[in-house]
Write a protein that binds this DNA or RNA. Structure first.
Lengths: 257, 257
DNA sequence: CAGGTTTTTTGTACGGTGTACGAGTTTTTG
DNA sequence: CAAAAACTCGTACACCGTACAAAAAACCTG
């Protein structure tokens, strides 16, 4: 027996064909909406892990039938994409304008990490379901635009963003890998390297790896992130300097903003 | 004779454990073995994708009952770890000795990429199931050992390997992302960035991203990889040069640990 | 060989998943 | 008010991992 209050259905929901066409819609109804479904999925993942997110459980939490969700979300895969997009939508730009390409890339990396770290399952979701929606595309558009204003060619910008993207994702994935074992209160989990088999390490045949694992558990994550980030930025900078002249010459009409 | 599972028959789920104890065993029987199960899983993944790997299908392919596999593999999760380990075991070292830390890191990155690219699902598996077995640990042991011979401190080595590891994984993940949708025959898939919603891009509101996507589809993967790799190595090198002396001095202070 | 012990295999069953389909219900519209 | 559109739901199917206990096979002793 459902009986979920009165559910007036007036406005056009997002067309089922395309998940991204109309994400936001008037909220003058208290029934099912894509936003509510996404929010329920996020809550479920926060509480029980990403694997616990299922159509049935979300429906139960929303007090409706599983199949009802399929009028707002085409499939579970698309639902995961919507969740990912909701996370990407939390990306914030600072009030001040950037003064050089390095500062904007630094902000991008840090802010991406911050968004991903808000939920421990976020990086896993990114690794598993790579269809990026409007939020991510919007951020990337601003990024590319600003970078071109600072004289970076599209090629360089694309490669730099690719490396940074991969670095941030992987780093946060290592940072937030839970692996079931509860983290010791005082210490954090190892950085960079997810985990290694304790059985193998216990053989004593790999002293370097053992020290490696022990030590990484104590390294502060933020330091490692900033250091890795600076490595990459330094590398990019060196590369730009060597062939920078060619890039600036090619610059043509670039829309403002 | 053939005793794969040497654990006591305890129904208690003692967390992982015996999976790595004895990976290799005599092949004097033509029945089930962990190797055959792993091989069947790999074949299945190659043909139908990683999602198609299931206990039931592997058993069917081996002509046995699903439950029979559980005497050689504790669970599906452990089976995936074994598959990952089998991929890691393909890592090869060159005959010649390395002369500096940069060359060995370069080899590590290239060879890791090669191993991952042998199967399009390998990087996804790495991102999803991060318990590394003896093959990976063995490689890491050699790596750390050699790096220390070249004067790199454990901290620097750990961070460098972490960044490289993440870079290679992420890069190959982007390289091999299939996403099921039609593979353009003439051109390769985009590098670095998995994919973006075509519906969103079709709005025309994101010209930079559109150009970004188009252009990346034409960039050769190898160039991007080598360039990103060199960026990272350059960054590491610059970092080492600035505080290289400190590392060696501090070494005596924290000898044990 | 017989008999017992251990190892390996299997059938059944439980609880979970995504979702196709069609029937039922509600709301909006003509 | 009737028709149409929008929405919900129950059922069903084909999978999944795997717990459990019985059955079968292999091995080891006497």
């Amino acid at each position: 027996m459902s009986k979920i209050k009165s559910r007036p259905a007036n406005a056009n929901p997002t067309r089922a064909s395309s998940t991204w066409e109309k994400l936001v819609q008037p909220e003058d109804r208290n029934g099912l909406t894509p936003e509510r479904i996404v929010a329920a999925g996020i809550a479920l993942a926060d509480q029980y892990g990403l694997a616990a997110v299922s159509i049935r459980k979300i429906a139960a939490q929303l007090g409706s039938s599983p199949m009802a969700l399929y009028h707002y979300v085409p499939s579970k895969g698309d639902l995961l994409n919507l969740i990912l997009n909701a996370l990407d939508a939390e990306f914030k730009w600072p009030a001040d304008k950037f003064t050089d390409w390095r500062s904007i890339l630094t902000h991008f990396a840090r802010e991406s990490r911050r968004c991903l770290k808000r939920h421990p399952w976020a990086s896993a979701l990114r690794a598993a379901d790579p269809e990026y929606g409007p939020a991510c595309i919007r951020t990337l558009e601003v990024l590319l635009n600003t970078l071109s204003e600072f004289g970076l060619g599209m090629r360089t910008a694309a490669r730099a963003l690719g490396v940074l993207f991969v670095f941030v994702n992987g780093f946060v994935a290592a940072e937030t890998s839970e692996t079931g074992i509860r983290p010791v209160k005082g210490k954090r989990r190892a950085v960079h390297q997810p985990r290694f088999s304790r059985v193998v390490l216990a053989t004593g045949n790999f002293p370097n790896v053992s020290r490696f694992v022990e030590m990484e558990a104590e390294l502060p994550d933020d330091d490692g992130f900033e250091r890795g980030l600076n490595w990459i930025l330094d590398g990019i900078e060196a590369d730009i300097k060597t062939e920078g002249q060619l890039q600036t010459v090619r610059r043509k009409k670039t829309a403002g903003r």
